[in-house]
Amino acid sequence: MKAAPVFEAGNHRWWILYDQEERRVIDSNVYIVESNGQSVLLDPGGFEIFPQVLAALAEVIQPSSVRGAFVSHQDPDIASSLPLWNTCYRHMEWHIPALWESFIRHYGALEAKFSSIPDEGGAMLVGGRKLEFIPAHYLHASANFHVYDAEAKVFFSGDVGAALLQPGHSVWVGGEGPESSKAFDEHIQHAKYFHQRWMPSNAAKKEWIDRVRQLDIAFLCPQHGAIYAGDNVHRFLNWFDGLTVGTALTH
């Protein structure tokens, strides 16, 4: 797995761990937020990719700086690594949607320290900096949250914005070049089916878009695929707004 910086300002950083080697499980991104010597993981990943994730993490942050993790919803590609992380980090705090707590405990580590996120959302502090939990229910799980860092203008969007890309893909939509609409159009073809098939509710989508449009976002970071930066953030919101979801099986 590779590691790359997403945002950096002094001791405040966002990292992405991406392009996993194991291809038999869905390719997933893991994000790390680092602030004042403390770190949290966002959607730390599945059981099978855990060794790669931890090895990549150790290359970019002080491993002992990890204090906790955020889990957007209950899926195995998000949280089935929980018992392994908990063996390595006994004091880790897990920020988990309240609705999924007892489901996620099925992955193991009954003794893990959970902090429930109520349906209306909430916040956590990392090294004194605030990360907000933004409700994204039914996108796709019935209890689902995203994370917003207002200072960095980074928005972790979980499965929203996800694309199924080939191995060796870039961190950014459109690669390292400028954010062109052509590159966006090309990329979004790999995101279309994912959103139509996994996102069940047009009403939930509309509500989420209205909420997210109020935020100042420079980077929209999905858990699968590549990051939308600058103009591509607005291109994505417009595209998602116009997409009818929950229709992949409709003929």
Partner: peptide
């Protein structure tokens, strides 16, 4: 040096998976 540590971490975490 840093890259050489990655295979060690991976190997031990595979062991951790198996033990689990």
């Amino acid at each position: 040096l840093q890259h050489s540590t990655a295979p060690l971490v991976r190997a031990h975490m595979h062991i951790l998976q198996r033990r689990r």
